[in-house]
Design a protein around this nucleic acid. Structure first.
Lengths: 207, 207
DNA sequence: TCAGAGACTGAACAAATGTGCAGTATGCGA
DNA sequence: TCGCATACTGCACATTTGTTCAGTCTCTGA
């Protein structure tokens, strides 16, 4: 880990960070090694020098993404469902903190899922385990009706979470603003909580 | 629209159908014109002859997909929510009917949405209008509690629907079988309906 | 001060891929 | 029967793209 040059240092790290943004934006196949090198202000050869191949770079970027992703969701989602107290400030602070990096993280996440690769699956599984433990906690706390399907509920909740992330670009085009905008996001959170808890029917079902 | 050859006829249609399957399986960039031509048992040149370019072929395949998709969902989803009667047989029949083509349709749909292209957006919008009208019908029928967020509900319902389609490959790897398998699909439908109607909390909320 | 290790460069190479085009075959209308 | 439109073929071409490698530069340790 010794830097062996004066000008143009930290090529390796710049490559990873730049490739992360480019992959998220255009996808792995949509970016050439020349694009990455140029955007990183290094030569093409440096990619293979550090990572062996373009695929090697991808692995490094994947690891970088995992770190970013876990860092972002840690301390964000768990409280939303397990406690009953109003988490408005928690969410506000979270949005504030990740306003810059979140869009890129989400975009990369989308690509990972789309590619249906092994590591996209492991990401899905990680998320699944996360939601499942939330459901088990709800169950233990007596917050689940006995006839709720314990198999499907985690998946349905995942769909709600992931959908919000993955389809935000479309939300933006339909509503004119991102679902992560403060007011919209607060509303979404309430709508989400209400749906999970009480559904949509009036207290006294009409039928 | 005149066939001008004897052997190897209907090249155009075979190209579209073959490309549809290949695009769904490997994505647009993951398939070469030579792959498509070979799988269609035609020459490479025929693609540009009929469609001008690979992109032209994609447009034709997109149209083909839209037709397939609309044909498949028409008469499937609307009844699920608007009526209270048990739609088990309807769904059963639907699964039976589309057992062969549905996986490919879903795979293609998934790519279209996740690629964030213009036409993926128009697909999203179409779906949105579809779900929104369902919600409005529910509302008119008095099936929505007054404090339900009318803005977010259609999106959340979309996420539930789309998630099932888009993440089916992962479901397959987590549960060992497709979410569209009969028994699993029936259960999913019940779980979905229950969640939308009543949520997950017991009748008497514990808090 | 010298040698080596490692970061870095950039031209050259080979493979892959979309497209163009000249040529062939066949059915239809005149 | 002739001519034209059109489906179709397949080779050739230009471009793109990932990879290789010989060579340069700079820091570190002996």
């Amino acid at each position: 880990m010794v830097q062996g040059q004066r000008e143009n240092p930290d090529g390796r790290e710049r490559l990873v960070r730049t490739a992360f943004v480019l992959f998220a934006d255009k996808g792995f196949d949509g970016v050439t090694v020349r694009d990455i090198a140029a955007a990183s202000s290094v030569s093409v050869g440096l990619i293979n020098h550090h990572f062996g191949s373009k695929d090697g770079l991808r692995e490094a970027v994947d690891e970088f993404f995992i770190a970013q992703f876990e860092d972002a969701i840690t301390g964000a989602a768990p409280q939303e469902l397990s406690t009953t107290q109003d988490p408005a400030e928690v969410i506000d602070a979270w949005i504030e903190r990740h306003a810059d990096d979140w869009p890129t993280i989400v975009a990369y996440f989308r690509r990972a899922l789309l590619e249906e690769s092994d590591w996209g699956f492991s990401l899905f599984q990680r998320f699944y385990g996360f939601v499942q433990s939330t459901v088990m906690r709800m169950d233990a706390a007596g917050q689940l009706a006995p006839d709720v399907d314990r198999l499907w509920l985690p998946f349905l909740m995942m769909y709600l979470e992931i959908g919000t992330m993955v389809f935000d670009p479309y939300i933006k085009r339909v509503l004119g603003r991102s679902g992560y905008d403060r007011e919209l996001w607060q509303r979404r959170h309430r709508a989400y909580m209400t749906l999970i808890r009480r559904g949509t029917a009036p207290r006294r079902a009409p039928d």
